[in-house]
C-alpha cells in the first residue's frame, strides 16, 4: 500500500481533504514553520500536525521559512488573510522582538494563540573533564580564574544569552563568551573541548549527557527533572533564582489576530487533542520537553509572564536594544 504513494496517486492522495465542503477547513491549510528542517521546532510541529489533521479533517501543508530569528515567517503570516488558512508554527523568539529591536510585534499583540504545546528546560552543561561539578563550584572557579572559562553563546536574545543573563543577575559570571550559530554546533564544540561551559536546553543535550560526553552543572528550574535523576534544581543552592523560574523556550501554533473565533476554537481543539496522541507525548518525553497545552487567555497570560521576565532580564544585562518600558511590559 505504501508504495502507492509514489507517482500519480501521491498527487491525488495529497489533495484529498475528506472534510465536509463549505465548512472550515474547506481547503489546504498552510503551516509556516519558523525554524529550519531538522530543528526542534520542526520536529515538534511535524510530529503533532498529522494528529491535529485527523481531528480537524483537513490537510496542513508545512513549509520551513527561516531567517531573521524567525521574524521572516512571522511577518509573512501577518501579510496573509486572517482566515485560519495560514498557521505560524513557531518558538518563543517573537516575544523578544520588541526589546531586541527586531520588529514591533509579538504573539500577544498581533497573533492569536492556537495552542502552546511544550516548553524546554534550560540547563548548564560542561565538558566532562572540567574541574567543577556543580554551579557553586563553577562560581568559585570563576572567581579564582576570571575570564578563563569559555562559555558558549548563540548571539543576543538566544537561549544561552538569556540564561547567562539570569545567572549573572544573582552571581558574578566572569567568562570568555565564544559565539556559535545555534545550540547544536555549540554542543558539538563542547564535546570537542573548544568551549568549557554552555547553557543549553535539556532536550538537545540529553543524549550526550546520558553517554557522559558532557556533564550537567546546573538544572535551571525550580523543580527536579525526572530525566536528570540526582541533579537538584538550582534554587536549592541559590534560592534567588526562584523569582525567574520556571522559565524555558516554548513552541506553539499561532494565527493572525482577527481570525474568526470559531476557526481559532476549532484549530485549538484539534491541536490540543492531537498533542495527547501517545507517540507525540512520547516524543516530548524522549526529548525532555514539558507539555504546556494551553490555549486562549491562559496561553496569552503564560506568554505575557514569559515576556515580562525575559525582557527585563536581557534589558538589565545590557543586551537589549530598547527598554521594556517603551512597550509597557511590566517588571516582574
Amino acid at each position: 500500500m505504501k508504495l502507492k504513494l509514489f507517482g500519480a496517486v501521491s498527487a491525488a492522495a495529497l489533495v484529498i481533504a475528506g472534510a465536509a465542503f463549505a465548512e472550515y477547513p474547506e481547503k489546504e491549510i498552510q503551516g509556516i514553520i519558523q525554524w529550519g528542517a531538522g530543528g526542534s521546532t520542526d520536529a515538534v510541529m511535524r510530529a503533532v500536525t498529522p494528529h491535529a489533521e485527523e481531528v480537524l479533517g483537513g490537510k496542513v501543508v508545512m513549509q520551513n521559512m527561516t531567517g531573521g530569528v524567525g521574524a521572516i515567517a512571522a511577518k509573512f503570516t501577518m501579510t496573509q488573510k486572517a482566515d485560519g488558512y495560514t498557521l505560524l508554527m513557531g518558538a518563543e523568539n517573537p516575544m523578544l522582538y520588541k526589546v531586541m529591536g527586531l520588529g514591533n510585534f509579538d504573539y500577544n499583540s498581533d497573533f492569536e494563540p492556537v495552542a502552546l504545546l511544550a516548553r524546554g528546560v534550560p540547563i548548564l552543561v560542561a565538558r566532562p573533564d572540567a574541574p567543577y561539578n556543580t554551579f557553586k563550584e563553577l562560581v568559585d572557579y570563576m572567581a579564582a580564574n576570571p575570564e578563563e572559562v569559555k562559555f558558549g553563546s548563540t548571539g543576543p536574545g538566544g537561549l544561552p544569552s538569556v540564561v547567562t543573563a539570569m545567572l549573572d543577575a544573582e552571581v558574578d559570571i566572569s567568562a570568555t563568551f565564544v559565539p556559535y550559530d545555534g545550540d547544536g554546533p555549540a554542543l558539538t564544540a563542547l564535546q570537542g573541548g573548544a568551549i568549557d561551559v554552555m547553557p543549553a536546553v535539556l532536550g538537545a543535550a540529553l543524549e550526550a549527557i546520558k553517554a557522559e560526553r558532557i556533564k550537567v552543572i546546573a538544572l535551571v528550574d525550580s523543580t527536579p527533572n525526572e530525566a536528570l535523576p540526582g541533579i537538584p534544581p538550582i534554587t536549592e543552592d541559590f534560592p534567588g533564582y526562584g523569582k525567574y523560574l520556571p522559565w524555558g523556550p516554548f513552541f506553539g501554533v499561532f494565527v493572525k489576530a482577527g481570525t474568526p473565533d470559531d476557526v481559532v476554537a476549532k484549530l485549538s481543539a484539534a491541536y490540543l487533542e492531537g498533542a495527547q496522541a501517545t507517540d507525540f507525548v512520547e516524543l516530548l518525553h524522549n526529548r525532555a520537553y514539558l507539555p504546556i497545552n494551553l490555549s486562549g487567555a491562559e496561553a496569552k497570560d503564560y506568554m505575557a509572564k514569559w515576556q515580562s521576565v525575559t525582557s527585563w532580564l536581557v534589558y538589565d544585562a545590557g543586551i537589549a536594544k530598547k527598554s521594556p518600558e517603551d512597550f509597557d511590559i511590566p517588571r516582574p
Binding site: 491525488a12 489533495v15 484529498i16 481533504a17 475528506g18 465542503f21 474547506e26 481547503k27 489546504e28 488558512y85
Partner: peptide, 13 residues
C-alpha cells in the same frame, strides 16, 4: 488553486 484542489479532492473522495 487551493479551492480547486480541494474541489477535485472532494470529487475523488
Amino acid at each position: 488553486e487551493r479551492e480547486i484542489l480541494a474541489y477535485i479532492g472532494s470529487i475523488l473522495n
